[in-house]
């Protein structure tokens, strides 16, 4: 597979702050690649370097086979970019925004209408409305249409779903899957762990570094421990009791359950259940489960924090 993007040892500092350190990864052509991390992990800085808006202090990067430092002008013509904040003109109408960005990229809406039709058709009833008056989900669709209107080979989406409700988020990801089917390579960043599973491959970012890069399945394989989901009506009491146990390794609330790992290996669910019942948690329910992406991310984070403390 040919590479659409290649970063090697990319580093960036802002004064005393090390925003990025030694970022190395590659994205294949036609891939939907996710950068997962919380606010301040360095996602936006990385995107700005890859979109040639910032220069890296260390390392190098290639986008579509072009060097981000030398060939920035060429790269800019061929990529689409949706910055983290809503970055369209609120005082222009939906249609005016789209036409403006089409013309600025030297094309017309009509020429590439097929590509954006599915997304833009939902906005067409409101095309005379000012962009500033749209709802969060609609703004996001408009921004995506504007980033796509010149049919870029590579699409950079920086936290497109932050602050957007669950319904709009799931619609947005369906749109991304279909864009991918049309052969567009997509690099998307998000703080939401549940979106990671929808990517072909993901990179976990934390404090300016990459924790792991793999497919969602490959990532969860890194968990490497037994994971138990424990349920009881008194969730908080359950959490405190589990934490006070000397054998407990990690105890996290997880939806309606508590995800638990133990220091002992080859533990059976019924042993754990017996322990809990002895502590008075009648009616508790214990199941060994496959770790999810979020479980893995937390485990990797903890490992890194521990390593930093040693």
């Amino acid at each position: 597979m040919k590479e659409a993007l290649l970063a090697e040892g990319v580093g960036k500092r802002f004064g005393a702050v090390n925003a990025l350190q030694d970022i190395t990864f590659a994205v294949g052509e036609g891939e939907l690649f996710g950068i997962i991390g919380a606010d301040g992990a360095g996602k936006t800085t990385l995107f700005r370097i890859l979109t040639t808006l910032l220069l890296p202090d260390e390392g190098s990067a290639e986008v579509l086979g072009l060097d981000v430092e030398r060939s920035w002008r060429e790269i800019r013509r061929r990529i689409g970019y949706m910055p983290g904040r809503f970055s369209l003109y609120p005082d222009l109408s939906v249609e005016e925004n789209l036409r403006f960005f089409a013309t600025v990229f030297g094309t017309t809406v009509e020429k590439n209408y097929e590509l954006i039709r599915e997304i833009y058709s939902q906005l067409e009833p409101f095309k005379t409305r000012r962009a500033g008056k749209l709802s969060g989900g609609m703004k996001q669709k408009l921004a995506l249409s504007c980033a796509l209107v010149h049919r870029p080979a590579l699409l950079f989406l920086d936290e497109p779903t932050t602050g957007v409700d669950a319904v709009s988020r799931s619609e947005f990801w369906q749109m991304l899957r279909r864009l991918k089917e049309q052969g567009i390579t997509i690099l998307v960043s998000t703080p939401y762990m549940d979106e990671a599973g929808l990517c072909d491959r993901i990179a976990f970012m934390q404090e300016g570094g990459v924790l792991a890069i793999d497919s969602p399945a490959g990532i969860t394989a890194l968990f490497g421990k037994q994971l138990f989901a424990i349920r009881h009506t008194q969730t908080w009491q359950l959490i405190t009791a589990l934490r006070s146990s000397p054998n407990a390794s990690s105890v996290y609330a997880f939806g309606s359950a508590v995800h638990y790992t133990d220091k002992r290996s080859a533990l059976r669910a019924d042993e754990l259940l017996a322990d809990l019942q002895a502590k008075g948690f009648e009616g508790a329910e214990v199941r060994q489960i496959e770790p999810g992406i979020e479980d893995t991310f937390m485990a990797l984070m903890e490992k890194r924090t521990e390593a930093a403390h040693e």
């Binding site: 991390g37 932050t162 934390q206 937390m298």
Partner: peptide
């Protein structure tokens, strides 16, 4: 908890639980 990493998010909920107790 918008935009916060999953571990910090859960620590925050720990505080919420305690306060509610």
């Amino acid at each position: 908890t918008g935009g916060v990493d999953p571990v910090t998010r859960r620590r925050f909920w720990d505080m919420i639980y305690e306060a509610s107790e």
